Amino acid sequence: MRSTFVRGGAALGAAALALTAFTACGDDEGNGKAGGRKGGDAAQPVDVTPAAAVRKATEKAEEFTSLEYRMAGEVPGEGVMEGTGAISMEPPAMQMTMTVDGATPDESGEMEIRLVDDAMYMNLGEEAAAQMGGKTWLKIAMSDAEGGEGGNPLLEMKQADDNPAEEAQMMNAADDLKKVGEEEIEGVETTRYTGTVTLDDLRAELTGLDAKAKKNRQEKIDEMAEQGVDEFTMDMWIDGEDHTKQFRMQAETKEGPLDTTMTFLSYNEPVTVKAPPASETTDMNGMMQDMEGAEGGA
């Protein structure tokens, strides 16, 4: 069952990436589809500098409520992933289906995760059901996740709305931003921009941030430094309404290459996430107590 939890943590990490890039996709009029101009219209006015275009996109979404996205890429230590998901910011809820192609069969497979009502539900599949009384879903309540050592993907997912623009905003630190050209993404005309960001670039911006943003940025710097990342490349595809249609991040880590792409399919559309039927769900806390009891009896 360990490999299943590993895949679940990776899937939540991918969802967190979607959240951090979220602010770049908002619609200040509350419209639903992440669209843009189609056909031959220019995606961005010709007099907009790359820095101004990226900054405007990262500041666009103060009124977002939800996001539907597709994710694909390679995550160090986990393997090649692809999946789809939907996230609601208020109330917090998330549903994601992720396929992982890991280094071994045990580390590969499909994972579905739901976050709703202060709990995370993981569909562990038929193989794990044999260890859970025939039930395929595992419930981890928020209260059970608190107080543990190290990073907890459930808590990270719950707290991601503290600064959902963090990853996308980091692109503003690049001093080599440039326009790549016009590209069509999901039938939408966009302009692609790219830039390289170093950890020193991010540190140089710390003094201009408020206390909360500074804390979040420092934590991100420390996390990336621990992963052996010194610099990373970001690409942003911006449509004709200054909304991010796609976002890519690439870096070299101690465990190998990181290369993830988020494509935004819609935003500010209703997202409904339901908890799995209780008859198909095992509670994590109860399962651990049963295991401890069995060990004590032995």
Rank of each mutant, 00 (worst) to 15 (best):
Glu231Asp: 15
Ala294Gly: 12
Glu226Cys: 03
Met132Pro: 01
Thr99Ala: 10
Thr253His: 01
Thr97Trp: 03
Thr65Cys: 06
Thr282Ile: 11
Thr196Ser: 12
Gly208Ile: 01
Gly36His: 07
Pro257Arg: 04
Glu255Trp: 08
Glu223Asn: 11
Asp222Asn: 15
Thr233Phe: 09
Glu219Arg: 07
Leu258Trp: 14
Arg55Val: 02
Met122Trp: 07
Val80Pro: 02
Asp117Tyr: 08
Asp176Cys: 05
Pro277Gly: 04
Met288His: 09
Ile140Phe: 13
Asp201Gln: 08
Ala204Arg: 15
Ser143Arg: 06
Ala18Thr: 07
Gly102Thr: 02
Glu112Lys: 10
Tyr193Ile: 04
Val54Phe: 07
Ile113Leu: 13
Asn268Lys: 03
Glu241Asn: 12
Thr194Lys: 00
Asp210Cys: 08
Leu138Val: 15
Val6Asn: 13
Arg2Thr: 13
Ala51Asn: 01
Asn268Leu: 04
Leu199Lys: 01
Met236Arg: 07
Gly40Ser: 13
Val100Asp: 06
Thr191Phe: 02
Met249Asp: 06
Leu124Gln: 07
Lys212Ser: 08
Pro276Glu: 03
Leu199Pro: 06
Ser66Trp: 00
Gly228Ile: 00
Gly286Phe: 02
Ser66Val: 00
Pro153Val: 13
Gly125Pro: 08
Glu126Trp: 08
Ala24Lys: 04
Thr84Phe: 10
Thr23Ile: 10
Thr194His: 01
Thr23Asn: 10
Thr281Gly: 00
Leu209Ser: 02
Asn285Ser: 15
Ala43Tyr: 04
Asp117Asn: 14
Lys215Arg: 10
Glu280Cys: 04
Asp230Lys: 13
Ala165His: 09
Met1Ile: 01
Gly39Ser: 06
Asp118Ser: 12
Thr244Asp: 00
Gly256Phe: 04
Leu155Gln: 15
Met1Ala: 06
Gly297Ala: 14
Gly147Asp: 10
Ala251Ser: 10
Leu138Gly: 06
Pro277Asn: 09
Leu199Trp: 05
Gly147Trp: 07
Thr104Tyr: 01
Ser143Phe: 02
Gly147Met: 10
Arg55Gly: 14
Glu59Val: 03
Ala53Lys: 01
Gly13Lys: 11
Glu183Ala: 11
Gln95Thr: 14
Gly125Lys: 09
Gly30Pro: 14
Ser108Thr: 10
Gln159Cys: 14
Arg203Ala: 09
Thr253Lys: 01
Gly109Ile: 05
Pro50Leu: 09
Leu202Ile: 11
Gln227Asp: 08
Tyr121Lys: 02
Asp162Ile: 12
Ala15Asp: 07
Ala251Ile: 03
Glu205Ile: 06
Pro276Gln: 01
Glu255Ile: 01
Arg2Gly: 15
Glu182Pro: 06
Gly30Phe: 08
Glu74Pro: 10
Leu258Asp: 08
Leu124Trp: 05
Glu29His: 03
Leu155Gly: 08
Thr23Pro: 04
Gly35Ser: 12
Thr97Ser: 13
Thr190Met: 02
Gly85Arg: 03
Gly228Met: 05
Gln44Asn: 00
Glu126Gly: 08
Phe232Met: 13
Leu209Arg: 10
Ser143Lys: 08
Lys214Pro: 06
Met287Glu: 05
Thr244Lys: 00
Thr65Ile: 03
Lys220Ser: 15
Glu63Cys: 03
